[in-house]
Design a protein around this nucleic acid. Structure first.
Lengths: 135, 135
DNA sequence: TAACACTATGTAATAATATAACATTTATAA
DNA sequence: TTATAAATGTTATATTATTACATAGTGTTA
């Protein structure tokens, strides 16, 4: 009668919950020190407390890191299996980031084989361009 | 009788050439401060000198930044149009990075449209897994 | 319950990555 | 040649991330 991994994913610790809530309600990706500044009133004082929570949230797939921006957004895509398959579009003017949810794309990438016939279990894809507003 | 952009790409400045040579002959991606350490004997003393050369080399497509690793490798792929379309495989154990050269993949991604029918002019894709040696 | 393993937290210090600001020099084009 | 753009040199500082060590909570199981 163990607790499954799925169940565990829903029981965030105190710091994890505070930081997830902040990221989840944000309309844009947040940087670690922006997060730190915003949660200091809740008792989280040190960078490490933020980075530890971020690491865990990324690990369980609740948030993703936008590598080219060193920033974090909440996952809104049920099909990215625990952070293993992520794709984003990034506007180079306003910096708006949107998670891409495309069955075709994820299928294509999950099945992609390199020259040696090797498949990869995990990927991150970042598209760049101009969003509707900024065109 | 102007000099074309292609020609310009081959005339690197002194610092750019020193830093490109180092990256080009490296068997692994190099980090900015590793580069700095290695070119100090050649008179490049400050981080900014390195970052400026790196920025330029990325811009003209001679090198690429591996975003998830904050490291740089030389481009060995004639088909990545001036750094606008890059794909890499990264071994999560030995950290070996290989640039992927796949006409199918680049065609698929160059033509990918999101839900709004929008195409993107630029992308970076990083695959993660275990390389042959580390399996 | 007691002992254990595991996860999370708190705190200080510091490492690693990257940019701002300003002065000067070199290369290129008109 | 003169204007312009590109590159360099230098100092200081901003931003991002980790090491090391001590403590506390949570769940498991003997």
């Amino acid at each position: 009668m163990g607790i499954s991994k799925i169940d565990k994913m829903q029981n965030l610790s105190k710091n994890q919950q505070i930081i997830f809530d902040l990221i989840d309600k944000s309309s844009e990706p947040l940087k670690a020190y922006t997060i730190l500044f915003n949660v200091q009133k809740k008792g989280i004082k040190a960078p490490l407390q933020v980075y530890r929570a971020l690491d865990k949230l990324v690990e369980i797939g609740k948030i993703h890191k936008i590598e080219s921006r060193n920033a974090f957004i909440a996952c809104h895509n049920s099909s990215c299996q625990v952070a293993k398959a992520t794709a984003f579009s990034i506007c180079e003017i306003c910096e708006k980031v949107t998670e891409i949810s495309s069955a075709g794309l994820s299928k294509y990438l999950a099945n992609f084989k390199d020259k040696d016939g090797m498949k990869y279990s995990k990927y991150n894809l970042e598209f760049f361009g101009l969003c509707k507003k900024c065109r």
